[in-house]
Amino acid sequence: MREYMITVIIEHRKGIITQHSIDAVNSALYLASIKRCSLRGVVLSDEHFIDEEKFIKEFNIDLEVLLNSKLADYSAEGYIEVLSGFFRNSPSHFIIIPHTPQGYDYAPGLAIHLEIPCITAVTGIRKHNDNAAFQRLYAGGRIVSEVVPECGKAVITVNPSPGKVPQIRNESAPSISVKKVNASLERTVEVLLKESVPRAGDLLRAPVVIAAGKGVATEENMSLLRDLARLFPGSSIAGSRGACDIGLTDYALQVGMTGKSISPRIYFACGISGSPQHMAGLRGAGTIVAINRDPDAPIHRMADISIVERIEDFIPEFIRAAKQ
C-alpha cells in the first residue's frame, strides 16, 4: 500500500462537495508542497461517490471512497469508527478536515482514537524549518499563535483560508479506490436532516450589508443601523452570532460559520469584534468598513476602512453628512 503523509477528508452533501472541502483540499495541497509529500482525499458515503470524476479532474489527487449504507448521513460515531479503522491500517501524518460543524464534531474524537494531537480552526499554514507551522487565533481573534506538533503528526481542522492558496499539483496520475467498510453505529439511534427555513434571501443578494455585533448592545443603536441601511438601496441588516444571541437580530440574518456566507460589495461591521467564526461568512465580501469603539478589536485589522468610534456617535453624524 502506498504511504501517504497527508490525507484530506472530503465533506459532501449527497455527493456534492462543499465549498469548505474545496478550501480544505487547497490547504492540504499547500501543506503537501511544504512537506514535499503525497496527498490523498478520503470520502465517506453510502453509495458510489458521484462527484469523483469531477473531483479527480479538479484536484488531481488520489481518492479513496469508503462505503457503507450507514454513512448516508453524517454521525460522529460512524465517522470515528470508519476513519479510525481506516487510519490504523493506512496511517497518515497529517489528517486535514474542514473546520465546519461536521468537521469539528468528529476531529477531536478521531485524534483521541489515533492517539495524536488535534489542532483546530487553523487559519494559515507556514513553512517552519523543514516542518509546517499551523496558525490559529485566540481571544476572539486578538492574538495569532503558531503551533507545531512535536511528533509531526496531527488531526488538523482548517478554516477557509482568507488569502489565495497557490495551486500545487501532484505529479503522478491520480488513482481512485472504492471499498466497502464496516460501520455498526450502536448508539446513534437516528440521524435526520431538515431544511431550516431560509428567510434571508435579501441578505444573500444585498450589495450593501449593515451588520450588528454584540457591541451594538441596545435597540436604540439597532435603529441607528436601520437608518444607515436606508441610505443604501437594496441593502440588508445582518448580525453576528453574539448579536443574535442577545436578540438584536434574528438568527435568519446571522452571518458566519453557522450562519450565512455572503459577498456584498460593502460590509459595514458595526460593534463586531471580528471573531474567525464570524469572518468565515465574509470570504467573498468586497470592502469591509469597521465601526468599533475598541481600537484593539480584531475587526480593525481585517477591515479595509477602519473607524474607531462609538456607534451612537458616528452613525448619526455620518447620516447627517450624507443627507447634506
Binding site: R13, T18, D73, Y74, S75, T100, P101, Q102, E186, R187, T188, V189, E190, V191, L192, L193, K194, E195, S196, P198, A200, Q254, T258, G259, K260, S261
Partner: peptide, 12 residues
C-alpha cells in the same frame, strides 16, 4: 450543519 440545514440526531 450550515445556514440551510439542521441535523437531528438521537443518541442513546
Amino acid at each position: 450543519i450550515d445556514s440551510a440545514t439542521l441535523e437531528i440526531v438521537t443518541l442513546k
